[in-house]
Design a protein around this nucleic acid. Structure first.
Lengths: 226, 226
DNA sequence: TTGACATACATACAGTGTATGCTTACAGTG
DNA sequence: CACTGTAAGCATACACTGTATGTATGTCAA
């Protein structure tokens, strides 16, 4: 609540509305984000928001794109492998910071400026590394697939990373040995502390990058050219 | 509408309700799935559904798990690579058949019997191929990450695969060359028909499997053992 | 027949997104 | 200064949501 006769006359902006929406979604979950709660957060009635956003879908698209803009984009030059690893890490951390964003990206077609910038920089980096246009496109798709999918699984995994072994032990009774033998073996291993059960986005990413390196055309000597 | 004095006395079942829910979501989108529309689909008032499902979240969890059960699980024996490819293809096709499912999986923690079966069979196949428990877990996570992420991108890609070149040309004006040079180059290439722009889940998957094969411990000769 | 139980219905309530039609207050003109 | 056009915010209202609550109806067991 900021205005409402408090002498605050600077009008709201779309950006302020979207920032507030992200704040609500981060703090109380996406379900808590309604036009009324959003209005309250910026000190305005629900309907006044429509002066700055066209409807709620516009809000959702807007906050997704703002989140995508938080992702650090690879530098135009430098090693492509390091750039991809850095970009993947940044994307993963960003999506973990806003756990609702991944789900939103799923359920809507979104090609805002943030997403375009994100994709463009990535493909640019791969082209710079010598990949063909086509191969760069496929590579980007594969890397992003891994990031999105990995983050998804990390987000909706039912156990907390901290008290892992403990929770695995609790989970065990729900896994009859005759029906889920492998999951049971895995859970036992985690419960016993023989395996920490923690997944690393770098595992799959490393495999992908190794494979891509092998596909990369040999660099025509750039030393002389530029 | 099936009952309502029509002499139909067989009571509803949870399964029937969930099947109807999938039908609505497939045909009219997830937004069209309300307790009232679902009740109408099975010929019952909205509140009567609560005799068979505990609430709407239960419905959503239920239909996701039913969809996951549609995925063909790898056979217990046979080549692990072929099994993984088959499983990935089946999962991808299933998620495309129910485009709302991917988004739902994102936004909720779900470990129903379908998901457990799916994961268990996969890890079992990898264990059978000689991977350690830990490596099998990481491999499954990486493969699933790729499937989920790839399907996500395929689903929310704004252009139709059929009239690709045509749509790329339309899309071009939205890509100023100074801001999105690489995306623009890519789009031009597609518009000109030099590149079809179609992504294949097998590309990234192949890279992953190649890398995993290299990590697989050498098989202790099983010929004599069993 | 009597009762218990499962199933389905009717009503009601708080909360949702948003269409419509105000009021207010500032910016720019004369 | 007054006048007015316009952008911003407000209030009301509507159709729709999930679901709490209470009641009716049909089937089966004793």
């Amino acid at each position: 609540m900021r205005r409402q006769g408090s002498g605050d006359r600077t009008p709201l902006s779309r950006e302020q509305v979207l920032r507030a929406a992200i704040g609500i979604a981060d703090a109380q979950g996406l379900d808590a984000l309604s036009m009324r709660s959003l209005g309250e957060a910026v000190g305005v009635q629900a309907m006044s928001l429509y002066n700055h956003v066209s409807n709620k879908d516009d809000v959702l698209d807007g906050i997704v794109d703002l989140v995508v803009q938080e992702i650090e984009v690879p530098p135009a030059s430098g090693g492509w492998r390091a750039a991809m690893i850095g970009r993947a890490g940044s994307a993963h951390r960003t999506l973990l910071r806003h756990p609702w964003a991944c789900g939103l990206m799923m359920s809507r077609v979104n090609i805002g400026p943030g997403m375009l910038r994100y994709i463009d920089a990535t493909i640019g980096c791969l082209l710079d590394a010598g990949f063909s246009l086509e191969l760069a496109d496929h590579a980007r798709n594969a890397i992003d697939s891994h990031i999105y999918g990995f983050t998804l699984q990390a987000l909706h995994f039912p156990l907390e990373r901290s008290r892992y072994a403990e929770m695995a032990a609790q989970f065990l009774p729900m896994l009859p040995a005759e029906r889920y033998p492998s999951m049971r073996a895995l859970t036992i291993s985690v419960a016993a502390g023989r395996y920490d059960g923690v997944h690393d986005p770098g595992f799959g990413l490393g495999l992908l990058l190794d494979g891509l390196e092998a596909l990369r055309p040999p660099e025509p000597d750039r030393a002389g050219a530029g």
